[in-house]
Structure formats: C-alpha cells, structure tokens
Amino acid sequence: MPTPTTASFDATDRALIRASQAGLPLVAAPYKQLGEMLGLSEQEVIAHFEAMQASGLLRRIGAVPNHYALGWRANGMTVWDVADEQVEMLGERVGALPFVSHCYKRPRRLPHWPYNLFAMVHARTVADAHPLVMQIQEVLGSACRAHDVLWSTRILKKTGLRIGPGD
C-alpha cells in the first residue's frame, strides 16, 4: 500500500470539503457563501483552502471536463505485465511520457490479470492512440511480457469524491 503523508485535517476542513465537493457556488463571492453556510468568515474559508492546498489535500480548484465532449473519444487504459525487478524504474519512464495522464503500479490478479503497470492515454481516435501505445511498448522493451488496452466505451459516472455526513 502507498503511505500518503497525512495532512492535518480538522472539522472545519471536513465541513468545507462536504460543502464544496459537488462544486463551487457560481456566485461572485463563492468563498463568502461557503462561509455563511458554515459559520465562517470569507477569510477563514480562504485560509483553510490555502492550507489544504499547501498540504496537498486540495489538489486544485478548477474545471473537470467530460473528455468525450471535448472530442477525446479514445481513452485507453493501457496495462502491462512488467518484470517486478524493473517495474519501478520503467514506471517512472512511462509516467514521464508527455501523453500519459496517469501511471500506476498495481497488483496482478493471477491467473486472469497478469498486468502490474497501468498508464492512461487519451486521443481523438483509436487510430491516433495506437502510436502512443507503441511508444510505451518501446520504453518497456523486453521487460514487458504482455499488454492490453482497455478502451472506455461509456462514462457511467463521474461525480468525484463524496464524503458523507460523518460518524
């Protein structure tokens, strides 16, 4: 398992996540509005978000597009069976390819799932994506025993994190 750094995370941070995880209010002063919902000043809300950003708990505030709507129709999860002793080094190199948006080492699920390295690629068409997959294959070379590409055919849900009301 990864060992993520644990940021300090207080009840106010949690309340702010709950209040904003579905979206930032589309009003002129959204942080003030969040504060009014939670009994905080605008400055307190901004300060908490800044601290969460500094700790990495807030990755960013921004737009999450539906990639299909932007024309990115070929979204492939490329999966690779890479020799264990080389997967760390090669994962770094695959993750560094400019067109790879996410790259992870994950457990195999033998006998049916031999793949331990996952890298996401995105292109307008499957034909455009093939050369990208081949570039990954070149990086992996003989350390890779098998691979597959799982294309997404439908987005079934894309809401993001939803933490609950708490215990």
Partner: peptide, 14 residues
C-alpha cells in the same frame, strides 16, 4: 461539457 467545477480533493492526504 464540464462534469464539475470546484475543488478537487486528494483525500489520501487525510
């Protein structure tokens, strides 16, 4: 076209 606009949290940090 956007599925969401707002903060993206990396909850693993907490």
């Amino acid at each position: 076209i956007l599925t969401r606009f707002g903060p993206l949290f990396q909850i693993e940090r907490a």
